[in-house]
């Protein structure tokens, strides 16, 4: 899976810059998500969104979708598939703009 190592790496490397990662799994069985956590060693929160309550709050219609939220609580970036390098580029750009 494209994000298997990427999200975890970003989560670890940007932790001291106040960046947190959360994965929201829609309509996926607990066993499947558990094996994702096990396989990738994910230490960030992985939420079960069985009834799509969370994804509907964000109007998510396609998966995967990545949403980056700034420190001010406002959405800063919305994208679909974000490979690790593109995710770093997006996060770096936001941090740079904020002078972080």
């Amino acid at each position: 899976m494209w994000e298997s190592g990427g999200l975890q790496k970003v989560s670890e490397e940007y932790a001291d810059r106040d960046v947190r990662v959360v994965r929201v799994s829609s309509n996926e069985k607990r066993e499947k998500v558990s094996s994702f956590v096990k396989d990738t060693g994910a230490t960030f929160p992985v939420l079960l969104d069985m009834d799509s309550t969370i994804s509907e709050q964000f109007g998510i219609k396609y998966f995967p979708t990545t949403v980056i939220i700034g420190k001010d609580g406002k959405v800063r970036h919305v994208a679909g598939l974000l490979p690790e390098e593109d995710l770093r580029t997006a996060v770096d750009a936001i941090l740079r703009r904020d002078g972080q």
Binding site: V22, R23, S26, E28, S55, F63, T66, I69
Partner: peptide, 9 residues
């Protein structure tokens, strides 16, 4: 905090 939300299915 900055938050990266990854929605997946």
């Amino acid at each position: 905090k900055y938050l990266i939300l990854s929605f997946f299915a």
